[in-house]
């Protein structure tokens, strides 16, 4: 435990140093990676550990983003309170959804959450207090003056996002190593056997859904911070797709993998941009190339390394060992 705290503090310190050395764009991308990291952790907890598929994490992020923005705009609260509200409200939503989901198996759950991912952002368009298509502003304000003149807005985003991501990862990794993590894995492995061993499996599934939604909501609020607004377009089906891709690419049951997954998700648009530039920057290329890369990666990884690259590596090593 003490080792882990030390590790996270070291990690934070390293981030601090790196954040000072790189240019503005990279700092901003760092904040995005932190955001994806939180969102992917929510998928790892839900899918990798408790074995439930949710394709609707984008929708849960929307819940978090909107509740943070509504809190900040209407109550003029400090920022940390807005993030807290994002966690609480999306946890409530998650437990409601989880109560329904715990009775559902594979196809029903996947379909229901997909329906949510398609529909929930569209709902925001229909209600005026949610700001419609242009959405709501979400302004966390300028960085405190004591950091000096040099301290830019993006660096402020990066700091907030990184601190939140580190805390979220620390807590998640502790939850996963606790009794709950073991119980979820037991249910995933064989739910009948788990029930015989005295585990209340549906209650544990609801809990997994709740915690996972809380994480997703937090990620949604961080996303809102980095783009300074919440709008339906930011939480589209494309985001849910991207999250699933990131989780599968990094190995859906590996928590350290989420950082890699987040980095890949941030890199994809960058790569697509470079490629599109080479082929003459046509509109359709700019719009659809990232999607093409994402889906090809998703398909290849789900066919050839469904349990993440880590597992293939382990298998390979084991084979070598046997010889």
């Amino acid at each position: 435990m003490r080792k882990k705290i030390a590790f996270f503090i070291l990690l934070g310190w390293a981030l601090l140093i790196i954040g000072d050395r790189v240019d503005e764009l990279r700092v901003y991308q760092g904040a995005q990676i932190a955001m994806y990291t939180i969102a992917l952790a929510s998928i790892v907890l839900l899918t990798g550990y408790s074995g439930q598929v949710s394709l609707g994490n984008g929708a849960m992020m929307a819940v978090g983003g909107y509740s943070a923005a509504l809190t900040l705009n209407n109550l003029q609260t400090p920022i940390w309170f807005a993030f807290l509200m994002a966690i609480l409200v999306s946890a409530c939503f998650g437990s409601l959804l989880g109560a329904a989901a715990a009775r559902l198996s594979g196809p029903y759950l996947a379909g229901t959450t997909l329906a949510l991912a398609v529909g929930l952002p569209a709902i925001a368009n229909q209600f005026s207090f949610l700001g419609g298509e242009p959405g709501l502003l979400f302004d966390v304000g300028f960085p405190p003056e004591r950091f000096g003149e040099e301290f830019t807005q993006y660096k402020w985003f990066f700091w907030i996002a990184s601190v939140i991501a580190l805390l979220a990862l620390f807590i998640t990794s502790n939850i996963l190593q606790s009794r709950f993590g073991r119980t979820w894995r037991a249910i995933r492995g064989n739910s009948l056997a788990a029930e015989l061993a005295g585990i209340h499996s549906s209650r544990m599934k609801v809990l997994a859904f709740t915690i996972s939604s809380a994480l997703a909501g937090l990620a949604g609020a961080v996303l809102a911070m980095t783009i300074s607004l919440v709008a339906p377009g930011a939480y589209s089906l494309t985001l849910s797709f991207a999250l699933v891709t990131g989780a599968v690419l990094a190995g859906v049951s590996s928590l350290p993998g989420v950082v890699l997954g987040g980095a890949i998700l941030v890199a994809i648009p960058e790569i697509a941009d470079a490629l599109a530039g080479r082929f003459g920057n046509a509109d359709s290329l700019n719009n659809y190339l990232p999607g093409l890369i994402t889906s090809v990666l998703l398909i290849l990884s789900v066919i050839y390394t469904p349990n993440g690259p880590g597992e293939n590596l382990r298998k390979h090593l084991r084979k070598k060992h046997a010889h």
Binding site: G51, G106, R188, V252, V296, I299, E311
Partner: peptide, 18 residues
């Protein structure tokens, strides 16, 4: 492995994106 159950669903999703 743990992803075997979810792989087909995720694969069709990837195909939709493709």
């Amino acid at each position: 492995g743990p992803a075997a159950v979810v792989a087909p669903v995720i694969a069709t999703l990837g195909l939709l994106g493709l």
